[in-house]
Lab assay of single mutants.
Amino acid sequence: KFNKERVIAIGEIMRLPNLNSLQVVAFINSLRDDPSQSANLLAEAKKLNDAQAP
């Protein structure tokens, strides 16, 4: 279950337009470290993406 959620979360994070490459890598590394947190990490990535919108 967590592996599928992690793959989906990674794909979504990679498509967030307002994150820089270091932020994307940090979120992906966090997902690798704890796949059970996929939903929480994706939500945090989306919040950061929205906050950094031009």
Rank of each mutant, 00 (worst) to 15 (best):
K47P: 00
Q52K: 04
S36F: 09
P54C: 13
S30Y: 09
A51K: 13
R6E: 15
K46H: 10
L22Y: 13
K1P: 14
K1I: 12
Q52D: 02
I8Y: 12
I13W: 01
L16P: 00
I8F: 12
N18W: 12
Q52W: 04
N40K: 15
F27N: 00
N3D: 15
P54H: 07
P35F: 10
N49A: 03
N18E: 01
L16H: 02
I10C: 08
N20H: 12
E44I: 11
A39W: 14
E12M: 12
N20S: 12
P17C: 10
K4R: 06
K46E: 04
R15G: 07
S30T: 10
F27Y: 06
Q37E: 08
V24Q: 06
S38L: 11
L22G: 11
N49M: 02
L41G: 01
E5M: 06
N29F: 13
K47W: 09
N3K: 03
F2E: 15
D34P: 01
N20V: 06
N29A: 13
R6W: 15
K47L: 04
A26K: 10
L42K: 03
L48A: 05
L48Y: 04
V25N: 08
V7D: 15
Q52C: 08
P35I: 08
R32V: 15
L42H: 02
L22R: 10
A51W: 10
A53L: 08
D34N: 11
K1Q: 15
P35T: 06
L42R: 04
A53F: 08
F27W: 02
Q52M: 11
N29Q: 11
E12F: 15
F27R: 00
S38V: 15
F2Y: 14
A39Q: 08
N20Q: 04
S36E: 12
L31Q: 01
N40M: 09
L48F: 04
G11V: 09
I13C: 03
Q23P: 00
A9C: 05
A9Y: 09
V7T: 08
M14W: 04
D34K: 10
S38C: 06
L31W: 04
L48K: 04
I10S: 03
G11E: 14
P54S: 12
E5Q: 09
R15M: 07
I8T: 05
D33C: 08
P35V: 07
S38M: 15
G11S: 12
M14G: 05
S21P: 12
A26M: 07
I13H: 01
I8D: 05
F2I: 11
N29Y: 05
S36T: 05
A51S: 11
L31D: 00
E44R: 08
I13L: 07
N18T: 01
L42G: 01
M14N: 04
P17W: 04
E12Q: 13
A53Q: 09
D33W: 08
L22F: 10
R6K: 14
S21A: 12
R15F: 03
A51I: 12
E5I: 06
L41Q: 04
N49Y: 00
N18K: 01
F27V: 02
I28P: 00
N20P: 01
K47T: 11
A45M: 02
F27A: 02
G11L: 09
A9D: 03
N18M: 03
N40P: 07
N18H: 13
V25A: 13
A53I: 06
L19D: 00
N20Y: 06
N3W: 15
L19F: 02
A39H: 11
E5G: 04
Q23K: 01
Q23I: 05
A26R: 10
R6H: 13
A39G: 11
A43H: 09
L41I: 14
P17E: 06
P35D: 05
A9E: 03
E44Q: 14
L42M: 06
K46D: 02
N18Y: 14
P54Y: 08
I8E: 14
A26N: 11
P54V: 13
N40G: 07
N3E: 15
E5L: 10
I13F: 02
D33I: 13
V7R: 15
A43Y: 12
E12S: 07
K4D: 15
S36C: 08
I13Y: 02
S38I: 15
S30Q: 14
L41W: 06
A53S: 11
R15L: 10
K47I: 12
K1T: 12
L41P: 00
K1F: 10
A43F: 09
A53V: 09
E44D: 03
A9H: 03
N3M: 04
A9M: 06
L41R: 06
N40H: 15
S38R: 04
A26G: 07
A51H: 07
E5F: 07
I28G: 01
N3G: 05
